[in-house]
């Protein structure tokens, strides 16, 4: 009997310290979290990290309900969400694990290379409708956006549109891959994708946030040295009381090895 109790206690203790944690949220951060989790588990066989997607908002509401330990998000937590969490008497902790740059892409045959933020705002809010207004051919502009469920959609609205709404009836695609596919076959198309998704099927636009004085090409170097303007942080959120549980994994991501993985996935490492 005694032996049994000891065994049971050991098993129980084993579960408690097995370091099982769940990460949930943004699909943008998903490939990074997955890769980091794989490598972390390879280095620490005792630990288990389960990573699932669903969208930034899904992750944050799961954190609120306590069904996940870490929420991954490609946008900052909203004021109302933070308020709701703090109403439960616990603090939510924010950690930036990497940066992501958004590239503006057009069809490869498009002559336009440079656009200012104001021009982009005009295009995506429907004020500018023809490429000739921004120095291109006489061709209708077809803007593509992500679906409203994506953190990328929110970030683009905040950073480029300055919180104005997208034009009524913008084309919205369910995934980044679909945006690339559609733009590569639509001569007048324009859209935005994460830097990691850039390929030869589409052409990236040089962007200026200072009214056309300096245009910068989207690249990891330019994003890192701060000259490319459309850069967003990627976040991990966790509740202060579970800090002990999640700390080792987050520390791993912030380590040199972890940040190396960030670079491999195509994001920009957090420069210390």
């Amino acid at each position: 009997m005694k032996k049994f109790i000891i065994a049971a206690a050991l098993v129980f203790a084993g579960f408690a310290t097995a370091n099982a944690q769940k990460v949930k949220g943004s699909d943008t951060v998903l490939p990074l979290s997955q890769k980091e989790a794989e490598e972390y588990m390879a280095a620490n066989p005792a630990a288990t990290v389960t990573v699932t997607g669903g969208g930034s908002g899904v992750g944050i509401s799961a954190l609120m309900e306590g069904t996940t330990d870490i929420a991954q998000a490609s946008r900052r937590i909203k004021f109302s969400e933070r308020q709701k969490m703090q109403a439960s008497g616990d603090k939510v902790v924010e950690k930036i694990i990497a940066y992501d740059a958004l590239a503006i892409v057009v069809h490869p045959s498009n002559k336009v290379t440079n656009l200012t933020r104001e021009q982009l705002e005009g295009i995506f809010t429907g004020k500018i409708t023809n490429w000739k207004e921004v120095g291109g051919a006489d061709l209708k502009i077809v803007p593509y956006s992500r679906e409203t469920s994506s953190g990328t959609y929110e970030f683009f609205k905040e950073s480029v549109l300055k919180n104005r709404n997208y034009m009524n009836g913008i084309m919205s695609m369910p995934a980044t891959g679909a945006i690339i596919q559609s733009i590569s076959q639509t001569p007048g198309g324009i859209g935005y994708v994460g830097l990691a998704y850039l390929n030869d099927d589409v052409k990236s636009i040089h962007v200026s946030y200072d009214g056309g004085q300096h245009y910068t090409e989207p690249s990891v170097e330019n994003a890192k040295n701060g000259s490319y303007p459309i850069v967003r942080p990627l976040y991990y959120y966790y509740m202060a009381h579970s800090e002990k549980l999640v700390k080792p994994f987050i520390d791993y991501i912030m380590s040199t090895e972890g940040q190396q993985t960030v670079k491999e996935i195509g994001f920009i490492p957090v420069s210390e």
């Binding site: 908002g57 509401s61 469920s149």
Partner: peptide, 30 residues
Amino acid sequence: GNAAVMPHSLFEPVRTIPATIAAELGEAPA
């Protein structure tokens, strides 16, 4: 194309009800 505009012709993007539900329910706060 999922553009939520009033359909004027067959050759314009439209958005349907099932596509809207599928694309948006994941993020809509319960």
